[in-house]
Computed example of a mutant assay.
Amino acid sequence: MFLLLCKLDAVAALQPSAARAVLILYASRATSNIPGSRWRGAISMASVGKIRILLPKYPQESGVMRPRERDRPYWASALNKTPQFGMMVKSAPVLGDCPRDDKKMKIQTPQAALPALMVAPNGARLKKADHPAIPQTIPEIVSTALVCAEAGADGIHAHVRDENGDHTLDAGLYKELLAELAQMVPRIQHQITTEAVGRYTPDEQIRLVRSVHPRSVSVSLAEMTAQGWTSQVEGFYKWCDESEVAVQHILYSPDDLGNLIKLSNQGSIPDTRLRMLFVLGRYGQGVPSQPDAIAGFLQLLPQLKAKPDWAVCAFGQSETACLRAAGQMGGKVRIGFENNTINEDGTIARDNAERIAQFISSRNRS
């Protein structure tokens, strides 16, 4: 298999700063379909560094030669020079290959720890009207994952959307998304969400996770216990632990953390792999997130019997300052358009990759 790089002036119109190049994938001995109907019969775009990439989506019955599973490319950052017409580049070995299992969808290499920098590119609320770079479709989410991985992310927290662009807990869409991410961006961790947004019940959230059987999922303790601590909820957390589904507990306040500590210490929630996300700020409150709010969470952690793995996300323009503080305190970070589209200097970020680059640059300067 190889990559054919062709110069194409039309690509420049897509983004002025992008290089005028197109990478076209094809294999000489391909026979199998690319999984996921959304990848057939169209073109997907991603910007990696200064190179614009077009990924062919093959029609199911087109007769076009299709890449085999073992011939998938690995997006090497070594492709950093201006491509010339007709230039041939041999692809690097694929990392993270794993079979697709439609029953359990265990498609990732197990990750014992949270990613150091997880991108949350879309969330449940913002749409294209809020920012044109909000990824809503599965191809857009995968393309965003590609460019964010190049920018420095080692994980993605993604929400799927329905045909109207609304947040949905659709197991079929999540299975399709995870399959595409495993094939196109296997080197980063993939996390789905159970966010209720006032629409879904704990039963529906549990049903989603059991159906998709992801490697990683975010679960709000407040949402899961909205109807009280039930045997079904307790069974869900224990099933996740036994089934190697890594739960990241979403904690909106120190009170949520206190509840988690109580449930963990009494054995109701397994404490073998406690992963947490401390959320600073809220949607629509109009009050900026503050770095010193992290201390309210950290002062409770010594009450846990087991050492947790924790990260921080923050709403609004102060996101960068909050995440920088989290890193200095020994935590990890989640960044992206789910919580904020504004750079620290007040400018609107071009896309999620720019938010990552801006944060990393700020962190390195501090």
Rank of each mutant, 00 (worst) to 15 (best):
L221P: 00
L263M: 12
C240R: 02
A222V: 12
Q317C: 03
T347M: 10
S318E: 09
E223K: 09
E234R: 13
V209I: 12
S220L: 09
G296E: 14
A326M: 04
F236M: 03
H249M: 13
E319Q: 15
Y252C: 10
Q285V: 04
L257E: 08
R215C: 05
N259V: 14
G286Y: 09
P214M: 13
D345F: 03
Q266P: 00
V233I: 15
G286I: 11
F337L: 14
P254C: 04
A295C: 01
T272H: 12
V279K: 03
A325R: 15
S218Y: 01
G235F: 08
D255E: 14
L277R: 12
G281M: 08
A325P: 03
F278N: 08
G336I: 08
D241F: 06
Q328G: 09
V279L: 07
Q232V: 14
G267C: 07
D351V: 10
Y252F: 15
P254Y: 06
Q317M: 07
I294K: 00
E242T: 09
T320L: 11
N265H: 06
Q290M: 11
T341L: 12
L263Y: 11
S243T: 12
M329H: 10
E319H: 09
A226M: 10
G286H: 12
N259G: 03
N339I: 00
Q285I: 10
S211P: 01
L304G: 02
N352W: 05
S253M: 10
V219L: 05
S220Y: 06
R273W: 04
F278V: 09
W310V: 11
Q317E: 10
A326P: 02
M224L: 13
Y237W: 10
L221M: 06
E344V: 10
H213V: 14
R334E: 05
K332S: 02
K307Q: 14
G336R: 07
D292F: 09
E344W: 07
V287E: 13
T320C: 13
S253V: 11
C322K: 08
A246P: 00
T272S: 14
W310L: 07
R350P: 00
G327P: 04
G286D: 11
S253N: 08
S289L: 06
R215W: 13
A325K: 15
A293F: 09
L221G: 00
E319M: 11
V245N: 04
N340E: 03
T225L: 15
Q248Y: 05
A306N: 14
D271P: 01
I342L: 07
L260H: 08
W229Y: 13
V287I: 15
T225M: 09
Q317R: 15
L257R: 09
H249C: 08
G284N: 14
V312T: 07
F278E: 04
Y237L: 03
V209F: 09
L251M: 08
S220F: 07
A321D: 15
T230H: 06
A326R: 04
F315H: 03
S216L: 05
Q248G: 01
A349F: 02
P254A: 05
D292Q: 13
L280C: 02
N339M: 01
K262G: 00
T272V: 09
V245P: 03
L280D: 03
F315C: 00
R282A: 12
K332M: 01
